[in-house]
Design a binder for these strands. Structure first.
Lengths: 137, 137
DNA sequence: TCCTAACTTGGACTTTGTCCAAGTCAACAC
DNA sequence: GTGTTGACTTGGACAAAGTCCAAGTTAGGA
């Protein structure tokens, strides 16, 4: 995570306490927080931090490629700091739990040229859905 | 589309003019409308139709498996009437255009048991991203 | 230590979706 | 046909998620 702050400074970021706290909140594996959750956790350390700043900072981290934005449910976007290792997501239809998973092969390879309709296709996001052990009937 | 209305009646649906109009708006291929777009098009034919009814009807169609809910961008959900033929989506990062596409193989098969963490995995949704011919620089 | 452009703030506003009490009507029975 | 009734629809209030902006603050270079 210190690496992240270094990289950001190298890219001309002003290193404010707000940005530092947001980056710290997003540290770890299997982290998929909504913007509101990030705000709540950041505010625990820095009570004055505003929602607008959290949204701004998350948007910048996504633009810089340091954090992924994940849309698994059509409601709040989630933010995934594990941006430097290709992975997909497994989501529980019952409780909404999210795990990072690593399917084999490149999902992009499954899309034949004839099915690309002239698009320059650069990425494939896969959401696996099912029930986690706790939610199974 | 008449088939759809028949199927719904067989399942005990009351066939109101509102539901008929919503079903008609959702007819066709490569249709991926937001709830608001559905409402706007439905209102062109039936001006008094309310947003609440459109949301209710879309929710019911999804619950019955006649329409798919697609979350490609973390904003408005989109509704895809092509629910009876397995397919995935190709989305333009520039203009947001969406195409139905058919990759080969079953995307579910790429997820090894060791990567399922005890989940009962039932579906895989793939979103391919890229630039469409019109948006390419 | 000062300066200034970059950053943050709070609040207003928009978009998307949900909920509810009251009114309406499709479908069945007659 | 006509009547009945529970399912459906409505408008509006509300909630959740996200954007925008003018005014105030501050990191980092001079």
């Amino acid at each position: 995570m210190n690496d992240l702050l270094e990289r950001l400074r190298d890219r001309g970021w002003r290193l404010t306490s707000q940005r530092r706290v947001v980056a710290e909140v997003l540290d770890g594996d299997h982290v998929h927080l909504t913007a509101d959750e990030v705000h709540a956790r950041a505010a625990a350390r820095l009570p004055e931090i505003s929602r607008a700043t959290v949204y701004n900072t998350l948007g910048e981290l996504v633009a810089l490629g340091e954090v992924l934005e994940v849309a698994t449910d059509g409601r709040a976007r989630r933010y995934d700091p594990n941006a430097h290792r290709a992975h997909q997501h497994l989501v529980c239809s019952g409780c909404g739990a999210i795990r990072d998973v690593h399917p084999h092969g490149d999902p992009l390879a499954a899309l034949p040229a004839a099915e690309r309709f002239g698009f320059t296709v650069t990425a494939a996001e896969v959401t696996y859905r099912g029930l986690c052990p706790d939610c199974r009937p």
